[in-house]
Amino acid sequence: MKPLSLVPLVPLAALGASGGCAEDIAPAGDDDVVADAGDTPTGKARTTREPDGTYTSIVDAQDAEAWTVVDLETGAEATAGAPWDLQVQRFHLALNGGVSGDAGVEVVALPDLRLADVAGVPTTGWITDEPDGDDDNADPDYAFEQGERWYAYDVTSHVLTPRPITWVIRTAEGNHVALEIAAYYDDAGTSGVFTWRWAPLAEGGAR
């Protein structure tokens, strides 16, 4: 080949070596984060009391490795060694009972029942986390995923939608809480950010 024929390849090689000549459009880094005032705070569990006496908890379970551990007695993230009731990791919810803990936490699923309609503490139907059974995964059979899971999964959009179930939880202290999973995404569409609406139940009666 005549050397001349390689001429146009020279600037291309230079362009390739420089990784292109267009400007870098990557976000500016920390400054950009600070400027984005709407970004979600990174707190793991925040609970507020509603005017009707119920509670709303925002629980950050985005971490795919670590569990976020929640004490329903306080509505806050439990510190290490402190009593806890629920822990969440992405879309998994585990109880402090059965194979997941030693505090004997149990739950009853009340399908198609809204939080406000829970009349009292159920006497039957209590389950807890079990060892992995005969299913298509190797996870423990979490109480929230036994039978009808707490979520419906859209295989096309990969969206998880909470089913209309109210869960009555017997806490580590032996108290009872009615809990409804309202959302798995925050207002910005971020996954792994739970919204729980819940209320303590009096023993044998309504909240």
Partner: peptide, 9 residues
Amino acid sequence: EQRGGMSLD
């Protein structure tokens, strides 16, 4: 860039 969040950035 996710509006109102960063996790999907």
